[in-house]
């Protein structure tokens, strides 16, 4: 009897770590686009990068419940780090990624102590503030960043010494896709680990998480740092594959866009960012073909509609669809319980 239960417990815990058919298909299709859609590689490259960026946001928003208004800070820092590095002769893309990841991780680690200090409101203020400060620095340090003109003269060496970047974006897309895939695997592994479980528990109920002995702040610092590094890599990919960096990488709309991307695809199951990136780019393509100028208005409208229509419910639907395809349980996050100490 008890061994039966033990087996059941094991399978049901370990099952979450297994890849579903839908997931395998998803990545196979992604790989296939490398060969099947050669004329779309430029936009696919952007999708992979935005997807990775949104994935990094999902790590803190979906798995730790931190609402950030300034995730672009890490994206931008990564982009500038990689860009500046390449401009000064260190043209190896992987080295650029590594440095960008480290730089962003350090920024994430340092600012996490401020971010985690207060209420949701404080988090909004600090994250927004950090991004603004970085934007201002990038603007003023024009000797280093090129300021408002952008960072010119970024030229990249071949990836792993073999694959030169080409004008069709084929190497770029393959490179971004592989990097995104590898980082996705790591993230996926993390969220089904005991550490990932503890993050979800913190998101759902920090009070109880503490009461089972979880060092809440340390866990959040760790995931915030990791998420920053991911965002930094995404930024670096953009800088390397477009060979240009402008102040735009740090702009507020980047932080808002990535939230929208994640929210479209659904928060808290990792694929949301990737699926959201696809939908977002397609939407952007369609809308800007139709009315190029006021894209921002449509973003705003989509955000408002998504929220009014019930984001949770929409997400649930996407996730159920996904569950059908992926053939495994994807857990949905609850809205954060608003309990104060007084109500214990």
């Amino acid at each position: 009897m008890s061994t039966n239960i033990a087996d059941h417990v094991r399978t049901s815990l370990v099952r979450k770590g297994r890849w579903g058919i839908g997931e395998i298909l998803f990545w196979l299709i992604a790989a296939a686009t490398l060969f099947l859609l050669p004329e779309r590689h430029l936009i696919l490259n952007e999708i992979a990068i935005i997807g990775l960026f949104a994935l990094s946001l999902d790590l803190i928003l979906g798995y730790a419940g931190i609402v950030s208004l300034g995730h672009a800070a890490f994206f931008g820092l990564g982009a500038y780090a990689a860009g500046i590095l390449a401009k000064h002769g260190f043209a190896d893309p992987l080295l650029g990624l590594l440095i960008a990841a480290i730089a962003a991780a350090i920024l994430g680690f340092v600012t996490s102590f401020l971010v985690l200090r207060g209420s949701d409101l404080t988090k909004l203020m600090v994250t927004l503030g950090v991004a603004l400060v970085l934007g201002e620095i990038a603007n003023q340090a024009s000797w280093l960043t090129g300021g408002a003109d952008g960072l010119q003269g970024v030229s990249m060496g071949p990836v792993v010494g073999l694959f030169e970047f080409d004008i069709f974006g084929t190497t770029a897309y393959a490179y971004s896709l592989v990097v995104t895939f590898l980082l996705f695997i790591v993230a996926r592994r993390i969220v089904v680990s005991p550490y990932g479980l503890s993050l979800r528990s913190i998101r759902d109920n920090p009070l109880r998480a503490r009461a089972v002995g979880i060092p809440v702040n340390r866990r959040l610092v760790a995931v915030y740092t990791l998420s920053a590094a991911y965002a930094g890599v995404a930024g670096a990919l953009l800088a390397q594959t477009t060979q240009f960096v402008s102040l735009d990488v740090l702009a507020f709309h980047r932080s808002a866009d990535v939230m929208l991307v994640l929210v479209i695809g659904g928060v808290g199951y990792l694929y949301g960012g990737l699926i959201g990136a696809i939908i977002f780019k397609v939407l952007q393509d369609v809308i800007s073909a139709w009315t190029p100028q006021y894209w921002q208005f449509w973003i705003g409208l989509i955000l408002v509609i998504i929220v009014l229509a019930g984001r949770e419910r929409l997400t649930e639907r996407v996730r159920t669809l996904w569950k059908g395809v992926a053939g495994r349980t994807a857990k949905s996050p609850e809205p954060l319980p608003k309990t104060s100490v007084r109500e214990i």
């Binding site: 928003l61 609402v67 208004l69 949701d120 909004l124 808002a256 939230m259 929208l260 929210v263 928060v267 006021y294 921002q296 208005f297 973003i299 705003g300 409208l301 989509i302 955000l303 408002v304 998504i306 929220v307 009014l308 984001r311 809205p335 954060l336």
Partner: peptide, 20 residues
């Protein structure tokens, strides 16, 4: 609703207002 929803909604309004 959650603060995330409120943030998304009000950012949406800001963008619409700015563009309008």
């Amino acid at each position: 609703r959650s603060h995330l929803d409120q943030v998304l909604f009000s950012i949406g309004l800001v963008f619409m207002a700015v563009a309008a």
